[in-house]
Write a protein that binds this DNA or RNA. Structure first.
Length: 275
DNA sequence: AGCGACTCCTGTTTGC
DNA sequence: TGCAAACAGGAGTCGC
């Protein structure tokens, strides 16, 4: 499931292939994903040159002079750059096609999303899409640190894991990285956010940064394959300490990892190492 | 304002 | 073995 590192990996893989290219056509095989696809996407994108591919939270922004296409991968979405001759397969919902050069076939940016939790939206030039308003800081920015978390969390009674996954608090930390960060910082996911000390929030912010940075670096190894039709990488899965390891021995102390649902999310932690 | 519950969807896993 | 029910998951939205 794409979290921030996978979205950033996608952005880095995508950018060199589509930045500077002119869009020839847009094919929508569905009128909607999570939400209806706004008419500007098919109407205004063709003919535009892609100026940049940016990321904010888990959203990708494809910038043109007419406006920006806003892409979210949901939990099962993926983007690939392929030769336009590759046949579409199940759940290939959107193609953004580029003209080929002399003798070379054109390519398409193809959006596949089986569960359709993803979205394709439109941000007019000079505006900020409503979904991007009110988002918290980027976790890898200097705006995000222990003091920030400590100050914001005072009085909050929700579990610290729920707090950390709130996109208004900090963006890009989903279920996997919340579990991993809390394990690394030695904080119980059940603890009320407002009851975590400043020192422990410093450790937590550091853990978030370290884990995300590492995961992005690991994803980077797959960038060269971005043009191939192979499936998405599972680059980080074998390195997970907590996520998906309920009942297994704690990597630190060997006691069985606990599992429960916190805030409607499967959560794994060590009752001994995380307090 | 904060927070829990609900919702979307479909591939995979679990349970009978 | 086969089928159906349960589950997973990002994050917006609703209601208390």
């Amino acid at each position: 499931m794409p979290e921030l590192p996978e979205v950033e990996t996608t952005r880095r893989g995508l950018a060199p292939h589509i930045e500077g290219r002119r869009i020839q056509s847009v094919t929508l095989r569905r009128p909607d994903l999570r939400w209806p696809i706004p008419p500007e996407v098919a109407r205004d994108l063709p003919g535009q040159r892609i100026e940049a591919v940016r990321r904010r939270a888990k959203y990708l922004l494809v910038d043109t002079a007419a406006g920006s296409a806003l892409l979210h991968l949901g939990m099962s979405g993926s983007l690939r750059v392929l030769p336009a001759t590759i046949p579409v397969s199940t759940h290939d919902h959107v193609d953004i096609a580029f003209a080929g050069s002399a003798g070379k076939p054109g390519r398409v940016l193809r959006f596949n999303d089986p569960r359709r939790f993803g979205s394709l939206l439109w941000q007019p030039l000079g505006e900020v899409h409503p979904l991007l308003r009110g988002l918290g800081p980027e976790p890898l920015s200097d705006d995000f640190d222990g003091d920030y978390l400590f100050d914001l969390s005072r009085g909050r009674r929700a579990p610290v894991k729920t707090f950390l996954m709130d996109q208004a608090v900090v963006v890009g930390v989903g279920n996997i990285y919340a579990a991993e960060s809390l394990f690394r910082a030695g904080i119980s996911p059940l603890r009320a956010a407002g009851k975590v000390s400043r020192e422990r929030y410093a450790a937590l912010a550091g853990a978030v940064k370290a884990i995300l940075t590492h995961a992005i670096a690991r994803g980077g190894t797959t960038l060269r394959d971005f043009l191939s039709p192979d499936g998405a990488p599972g680059y980080f899965e074998q390195e997970l300490s907590a996520y998906g390891r309920g009942g297994e021995p704690c990597p630190r102390c060997g006691r069985p990892m606990k599992q429960a649902s916190i805030g409607q999310r499967a959560t794994v932690w060590c009752g001994h190492c995380q307090r």
